[in-house]
């Protein structure tokens, strides 16, 4: 991993915490994620300390292979740390079994993927409602919420369309609606605009901004520097470590108002 431009001997990993006052939503304590293949070891995450607080708006950047997706997967309880501890909403996820993690995903987390990942045999409305399907106590107004979210992302008139009848941008809007249907504590997006043209990307990012202004906690991974500046804070990954945490102009602007 030395070809990624980040010096291996970069300063001791940065402990990323905005030092803000709101409650921590997600917290990493020296998290490592190590892939072992035979006698080879890949440290996808190599000692990460992080705190994401409620209402914060983060972007993660870094060269390919630096561990951005791995970080997001651990944040989303899809993957577990090999070492270290991950607290989600004050709960040590290391203590939880597979079922409890699944329940956490369905209640507290929202995912948006680069390749949309809608279920092909379900229509728009049913796709949006999938996370509710797996909650042990699904809300009574689930369908109503799903309809509202669909109109909010501009697809109120496409409820019974199948994913293959939608454009990429529309599919990603469905995915966003789906990520919000369970009113998550944390919305995670991995290169959500990676497959979209710049115009559509802007529309999606405008949606993110809107969510942020409503107080949602958002963490998104991106390749593009310009896109990362949309967030309040930028986390720069390199070689499985946090290289830098930078506040953006947006934060300064928000603090000023």
């Amino acid at each position: 991993m030395s070809d990624n431009g980040v010096p291996r001997e970069s300063p001791v990993a940065v402990a990323a915490d905005s030092g803000g006052t709101s409650a921590p939503v997600a917290q990493f304590q020296s998290v490592q994620r190590i892939y072992r293949m035979g006698d080879q070891e890949v440290r996808a995450l190599d000692g990460v300390d992080l705190t994401f607080r409620a209402g914060e708006y983060w972007s993660i950047v870094g060269p390919s292979g630096s561990g951005k997706s791995t970080l997001l997967n651990v944040l989303g309880c899809l993957d577990r740390p090999s070492e270290g501890t991950y607290f989600l909403g004050g709960e040590d996820t290391g203590e939880l079994n597979d079922d409890a993690l699944s329940e956490l995903r369905s209640r507290r987390l929202g995912f948006i993927f680069q390749s949309y990942n809608l279920i092909p045999q379900l229509n728009v409305l049913d796709n949006i409602m999938v996370p509710l399907l797996y909650q042990s106590h699904p809300p009574a107004d689930g369908e109503e919420r799903a309809r509202e979210l669909a109109s909010r992302v501009g697809l109120g008139d496409r409820l019974d369309h199948r994913p293959r009848e939608l454009s990429g941008g529309q599919m990603q809007r469905v995915a966003i609606a789906r990520s919000l249907v369970n009113d998550p504590d944390l919305v995670l997006a991995d290169e959500a605009t990676g497959n979209l043209d710049s115009q559509t990307s802007m529309e999606i990012l405008d949606l993110f901004d809107e969510l942020h202004s409503e107080g949602k906690t958002i963490v998104f991974v991106t390749h593009e520097a310009s896109v990362s500046e949309r967030a309040q804070r930028v986390l720069v990954m390199g070689d499985g470590r946090v290289c830098e945490v930078r506040e953006t102009a947006r934060l300064a602007q928000e603090l000023a108002t």
């Binding site: 079922d99 995912f111 999938v130 996370p131 399907l133």
Partner: peptide
């Protein structure tokens, strides 16, 4: 496989 991954990511338990 992909669909299974999606459902798991969205909260499906193994039993689901």
């Amino acid at each position: 496989t992909r669909e299974i991954g999606i459902r798991r990511a969205l909260g499906a338990k193994r039993q689901d």
